[in-house]
């Protein structure tokens, strides 16, 4: 066990394992290019719940169930839950605490919440004293639309760079006992704001934050981008990925070979009319807990850098003309054999 500091903002953890993951998504996410790679797919966005907010709580609860089942863990063995979501007062995560009754540390980095949670959970586990930590993030398309945009049935045209908040939840059981995947290192990002103001173009606003964290991780650990089989950003989407590759290129960092994005992978842009791609805390959480963890376990990847990206604005701040501060947190995940 242990946590060791590397460089300016990176912490290497030893003996921190991913025991199991749970991913539950809505019908659009479940029928996209990643079809069949999630634990459960809801038949519709509401799935019998009376409000959209309850639906978001329910989808997170189901992700918890799957993570517990696959890691052969009971709620009573979870020492701490670290999680968050997009709604005001992170109600989705907090309201689930009423039922699971485990100690709960809520976190928020908008759509970067999942890797913030993974990082915090890994460091606490590495630091000792805890044995199992549940990490989670969730979002729901309709609750996010209500909070950030317009009523659902209001007709308006979305711009090509607008993101589609995913109805999705992902949960991970971290433990200090050997599991299939290991968390190798964590880099906490700083807030980067290069002046983007358009809430319908969060991809280009977040790209510099993703660059900042990725280059920090590589510099701190003395690695190059090619040392990873894949670097997945959270929800930069089609345009954000283009911007990140271009921006990194100008800074002499070539990401074009390894870079991919959870939000871009989640939907078929031509068939599903999702414009820039998926976003929301549940986007990177479910894509990691489902498809990416699967690829790591199956051996498609051995080393993955997950860099969830968050736009830290509120409807009030952008109406007041403020630019959008962004953040990204990176977590390096490796398959067991590769780590020793």
């Amino acid at each position: 066990m242990g946590v060791a500091r590397r460089g300016k903002a990176t912490y290497e953890t030893t003996n921190v394992w991913i025991r199991g993951t749970g991913s539950v998504v809505g019908p659009n996410e479940g029928s996209g290019p990643l079809k069949g790679q999630f634990d459960r797919v809801w038949p519709d966005e509401q799935n019998g719940q009376t409000t959209w907010e309850k639906a978001e709580q329910a989808i997170l609860s189901e992700a918890y169930d799957e993570a517990l089942r696959k890691s052969e863990t009971d709620w009573s063995q979870i020492d701490l839950v670290v999680g968050g979501d997009l709604l005001d007062q992170i109600v989705t995560t907090n309201f689930n605490g009423r039922t699971h009754q485990r100690p709960l540390a809520g976190v928020f980095s908008a759509c970067a919440t999942f890797t913030e949670g993974l990082g915090v959970g890994a460091m606490l586990l590495g630091g000792g004293g805890l044995e199992r930590v549940m990490v989670s993030a969730a979002s729901h398309h309709q609750t996010a639309e209500r909070q950030f945009r317009f009523p659902l049935e209001l007709g308006y045209q979305r711009t090509p760079t607008a993101a589609w908040t995913a109805t999705a939840a992902g949960a991970v059981v971290l433990a200090n006992e050997r599991g299939p995947l290991r968390i190798e290192a964590v880099t906490f990002g700083r807030v980067v704001d290069l002046g983007g103001k358009d809430p319908n173009d969060m991809g280009s606003a977040m790209a510099p934050a993703a660059y900042d964290t990725i280059q920090q991780h590589l510099a701190d650990t003395g690695q190059s981008a090619g040392d990873f089989d894949a670097i997945f950003t959270g929800d930069l989407g089609h345009f954000g990925v283009e911007m990140l590759i271009r921006y990194a290129q100008e800074k002499q960092l070539d990401l074009s070979e390894v870079l991919d994005d959870c939000g871009r992978s989640l939907y078929d842009a031509d068939q599903q009319d999702t414009h820039n791609g998926g976003s929301g805390p549940g986007c990177s959480a479910s894509v990691f807990a489902g498809p990416l963890a699967r690829r790591l376990v199956q051996g498609d990847y051995r080393r993955l850098l997950l860099v969830a990206t968050g736009a830290l604005f509120s409807p009030t701040t952008y109406q007041q003309g403020e630019s959008i501060p962004c953040i990204a947190h990176a977590v390096a995940v490796v398959r067991e054999e590769a780590s020793r």
Binding site: L194, G195, G196, D201, S204, H238, E242, R246, Y247
Partner: peptide
Amino acid sequence: YQQLTQEMMPRR
């Protein structure tokens, strides 16, 4: 960066 964003922005 804002100029680069405008240049690369997908056209409506």
